[in-house]
Write a protein that binds this DNA or RNA. Structure first.
Lengths: 144, 144
DNA sequence: TTATTTTAAGACCCGGGAGTCTGAAAATGG
DNA sequence: CCATTTTCAGACTCCCGGGTCTTAAAATAA
């Protein structure tokens, strides 16, 4: 099981690709799909969702493409994942019990809640700006 | 996205149900599916995998059912999840990049590896015995 | 032996995520 | 205007996890 869907993976990588761009020009889906080896049509669909969510700004026609609609420091991993796959980043209860929480905990609740909170914080605090900076500084990769 | 599959959830709950039983008698799938409100046939299929993996022992016929094949202190969450859904508890790389690791990290690797290790440790250290003990002591629930 | 209870095994179906394809619509450049 | 480049939109296919159903096999009880 993956923590996030493939769509979210692609969305994150594309957002990083755009943010890591030195210039402010629009980036075409065609270029990104080629550079990161992702299906063009599939990536298009994902980026449309991010555009509708207000994370990206699109311009069509020649010289068109996608750009960030907000400063990279304002966009978090949580924003991106949520825009792509909805509001449930991952299920709260490991055992899938409805209403599991402090009030009515499942046997694993105490143990899992701690980890879950850490991951949620990571996604909520991590911005595109910080990731793009680290990516540039350390020469990290966005494709195989 | 859920961290583990529904099959794993059911497998964990059933294992806990059996481990929490005061007596050592075999428990029927019929009883567990009714008590925990899980599809009988689906639960059967999951428990068969756990039986083949050597975690449970089954006896059929009247008075038959399932029991732990090992001491509860020997069975970990990791054992159970692995027996149900294979060896990949969750993908190592958040971005889904092949070969992501210390050598060739993706932009999120440093941040995610830390969390991943904690979760893996939780699953590896947590035994059925301990969970059953806590469940009994605190009156925790295995169903909605 | 016969009937009953229970797991074992596998075929089958359904819905949704993943990915493809086609045809627009919008903007630019000549 | 016309051709090209690009996003936008939606129908379509494929595969797999989740779930149902049927039949066989094993054990017990009468």
């Amino acid at each position: 099981m993956a923590l996030i869907s493939k769509s979210s993976e692609y969305g994150l990588r594309a957002a990083l690709y755009i943010a890591a761009r030195p210039d402010e020009a629009h980036v075409s889906v065609r270029e990104m799909s080629a550079q990161m080896d992702i299906s063009f049509h599939f990536l298009t669909k994902i980026l449309q969702r991010m555009t509708r969510a207000g994370l990206l700004a699109s311009t069509r026609g020649a010289k068109g493409g996608l750009a960030l609609a907000q400063p990279a420091a304002k966009i978090t991993l949580l924003d991106i994942v949520r825009s792509v796959e909805g509001d449930d980043l991952f299920r709260e209860c490991l055992l899938g019990l409805a209403g599991c929480g402090e009030k009515r905990p499942c046997p694993l609740h105490r143990h899992w809640a701690k980890e879950r909170a850490r991951i949620e914080k990571l996604f909520r605090k991590m911005t595109l700006a910080r990731l793009a900076r680290e990516t540039a500084r350390d020469g990290l990769r966005l494709a195989d």
